[in-house]
Design a protein around this nucleic acid. Structure first.
Lengths: 331, 331
DNA sequence: CTGAAAGCGCTTACAG
DNA sequence: CTGAAAGCGCTTACAG
């Protein structure tokens, strides 16, 4: 590998001159030509490590994700990437495969790589996280979860849960099964459910049962038949689209018509929910936009600009075919 | 930010001693204790740039992907990531958003960051690519596409196309619409189709029409109705699962029963293809495994070990509900 | 416009 | 076991 010294020697100038050429400083025409030629010939590529060692202004932002194979993650990542590129930052992605220890580890590794800041697509925030954040002293932005100790961008899970609750009630459903996830996940497991519960309580006179399942389709497919047999709700309100998709499959497998005999709703707004038959009524979150906002916010943080400690991302209920209107008076 | 010099000063030893402590060299018990304390107190984190500048043995491997929101990409990435971690390498992901210029640019950027090698989830290989590869002189591995100038890991598109062709024929289909993609994509656009065509030719006496669409579901949804109206095939052989999913949706929209009135097949083995109704008969590729093999191969390349220029990844036809057996004699 | 020199934060022989 | 010194490849005042 060639170094700047080689280029300098080969073109008969000083290293500083080559460096200036590289960084757009003032260099004479002839000198420029010579250096240009040598660089082309040798295929010289500057060593970023050496550059960063001096420059000291890192322009790379780390993003830590719990998994790569999720619509929410991909979309958020795309949003972050797009925006960061526009703001002249580079993104470094690190995957934890849903392993919290690895997550902590990755936070330290990224800090060691001198990222300008870390965007964490969070699932749970533990004390170890907070400790790491405090120790590191670099800008941290949580996406998807919130914590008072650090800046957060969240989807408005509570409101969204509340709205879907109201919606379901408005459609005449009174016997409702809510398929949630672990309460360790504050955003999905707690807030969505809380919002939903509030709507139900306001409505009064409902029979609701809460179930807990995982984020995996397969588990929903297994759980749902039993729920139907034992509780027989008119609707399944699922805390994620994946769960809803699993529920839909389970219903098909049991020969239950959706929405005529059973309604189903999801959360997320995954692309496939529109493609399937029946298409799924769900709460759409704007992951890509959230990613963009996350990127912008992170850059603000880096530049020590003002930023609200909690940023709320929007959502929208998408009415499709999977919910029956019990009040429509049809047969 | 603290440096190794600070730690040395604070613990009253030389920088070299701290460095040795950090890298597991021989250090006296007392010295060790002192340094340990200071590091804990200060929250010192070594600067990787400075480390890399000396060490010279990069352990980070770059992966360039055309898009983040695809099943194939995520799965491959997961496989690469897992395997790399096991082999003590780190993965750096860079997304090009299907922009070839950006792809080239990213190749150079990664080289500048001194990655040990680059895994490229390729779509098209142009002369500019080859030029970059030659210029860079670092190990490159193509995944998904092949090119004689560089090592490649590909899915066996030709064979897979051939097999699905045989399968379709075996089910009695003779009036077939093949929905392919641009021939600029050698793997998907050319090889799958070629394999399929070979099977058809061997069967003889078939009416086949070839159509070209994009990788987007939405476009398939738009194209398919017209194909049905004008050609009315008994089966739609789609070059990707996304196209098949779009076709399925289009059929639903038209009120056409799949598979009774129209059969559909895909390529890919995406998770949703199993969940939807009817579930989709498709060719499953093993993306995650391919990613693992890619990671292993890359490390071999880095260590200058032997490697076959073309590695074939496996596939499997998954029979599900979307294909009707015209020969079964049912009504 | 150009060059010599110092320094970024670390590691690694080499002495002791 | 420990330290002084050189060096990794670059950048950046500072002179000229």
């Amino acid at each position: 590998m060639k170094t700047i010294a080689d280029i300098a020697r080969l073109s008969g100038v000083a290293k500083s001159t080559v460096s200036r050429y590289l960084n757009g400083g003032s260099v004479g025409e002839l000198t420029k030509k010579k250096i240009e030629r040598v660089i082309k010939e040798t295929g010289y590529i500057p060593n970023t490590f050496a550059q960063s060692l001096k420059a000291k202004k890192p322009n790379i932002i780390g993003t830590i994700v719990p998994r790569l194979d999720s619509y929410a993650t991909s979309q958020t990542l795309i949003g972050i990437d797009e925006q960061l590129r526009e703001l002249n930052y580079q993104m470094l992605i690190s995957n934890t495969s849903q392993d919290l220890d690895r997550e902590i580890e990755n936070i330290y590794t990224m800090a060691r790589q001198k990222v300008a800041g870390i965007i964490l697509l969070a699932t749970q925030i533990t004390d170890t996280h907070i400790e790491a954040f405090q120790q590191l002293q670099i800008p941290i932005l949580l996406v998807g979860q919130q914590h008072q100790a650090v800046y957060s961008l969240i989807h408005n899970d509570f409101e969204a849960g509340y709205d879907i609750g109201k919606y379901v009630i408005a459609k005449g459903h009174r016997k409702i099964a809510y398929l949630g996830v672990t309460e360790q996940d504050i955003a999905v497991g707690v807030n969505r459910k809380k919002g939903f519960t509030k709507a139900i309580q306001e409505a009064g006179d409902c029979e609701v049962k809460y179930y807990e399942t995982s984020f995996k389709m397969a588990e929903a497919i297994k759980r749902v038949p039993d729920i139907i047999d034992k509780f027989n709700p008119s609707i399944l309100v699922c805390a994620t689209d994946n769960i809803a998709l699993g529920a839909l499959k389970a219903a098909h497998l049991k020969g239950i018509n959706v929405p005529d005999h059973l309604s189903i709703t999801g959360f997320g707004g995954y692309e496939v929910t529109e493609i399937i038959h029946p298409s799924l009524t769900t709460v759409q979150f704007f992951y890509k936009e959230a990613g963009q906002v996350a990127a912008q916010s992170m850059v603000k943080l880096i530049n020590s600009e003002e930023l609200a400690p909690i940023i709320l991302s929007k959502y929208k209920i998408i009415e499709r075919e999977s919910v029956d209107n019990l009040l429509s008076g049809k047969l």
